[in-house]
Design a binder for these strands. Structure first.
Lengths: 149, 149
DNA sequence: CCATATATTCCCATGAAATCCCATAAAAAG
DNA sequence: CTTTTTATGGGATTTCATGGGAATATATGG
């Protein structure tokens, strides 16, 4: 399972170490690479084992080759995905696209999400999680109010 | 599988390098050439292994109710299809027909579509992709439904 | 059937980017 | 405190995209 968070450094060559805990989980599942794509809802990169993307491909493949939806789905998902291979020391190289989407400069924050994990710029993540916390407390009071009525 | 995008240069001789990642996937599947045809719905060229084209033609056969339509449809694909062989450095040569359909001049954008890939003029693709992203967020729930069924 | 032009493919050189490999530092484990 | 694992830096090597010359194939006209 991917849990906890890890902050690692992006070097001059654009490489970053994937946390050893994540790597050992991946290899225990039989993977030696990961697939990733920019999140649709926030400025993180989502990572998942390759077979997850393969499932998406299979479901797209059920659509007719001349249906508009096929191109729309595959373009918005597959064209923006990357397969990242680990080097011999467990690092991956991040492309310009991925850096731009996240705003990552110096540090990379890995955030475990159970079956997947994310990469964030540490600052962006702090904003995001603070925001999430506020929203949660607003909703909580809303919920309490509804409960008493 | 074919994912991500790669922008390569068209040289004076009309050659372009097929991304190494795509070539290695093709050869892992036992192919050393590709078949391509102009898309019916947009200004890209569709690439696929040869047996896939045969499958597409079969599916046209079963889908179209009128025999006449079938013939027109499948011959129009076949007549406009090319088999492109890789040279010793992994390049293919693009014919005038293909260049005209796409509007490609200097740069060739390869776009992964899972089991197939496309070639685009970078500008045309940007337009298409911005549009696709908007439509995808509207229709994503539709895809999810199909995945579970 | 040959000769010339044109296009196609092979082959090698180059520069840039990706990857390997090793050294060292920092952290964790025993 | 010692040993092992992990993260990081950087030089060495390999891969890849690209350009262009040489060799081969194909077409066209006489």
């Amino acid at each position: 399972m991917f849990i906890s968070t890890y902050e690692n450094k992006l070097d001059k060559k654009g490489r970053v170490s994937v946390p050893a805990a994540y790597r050992s989980y991946l290899s225990s599942q039989g993977y030696n690479s990961v697939v990733c794509y920019p999140s649709f809802t926030n400025s993180s990169i989502e990572f998942c084992p390759q077979d997850r993307l393969e499932k998406i491909i299979e479901s797209i493949d059920t659509l007719s080759p001349f249906e508009e939806n096929r191109d729309i789905f595959s373009t918005s998902i597959l064209a923006n995905s990357f397969q990242l291979n680990f080097d011999t020391d467990g690092r991956v190289t991040l492309s310009e696209k991925l850096l731009n989407h996240t705003g990552i400069k110096e540090k990379v924050l890995f955030v475990g999400q159970g079956k997947t994990f994310q990469m964030w710029d540490p600052m962006s993540f702090k904003k995001f999680s603070d925001d999430a916390r506020k929203k949660a407390s607003l909703k909580r009071s809303e919920l309490k109010w509804k409960q008493t009525n």
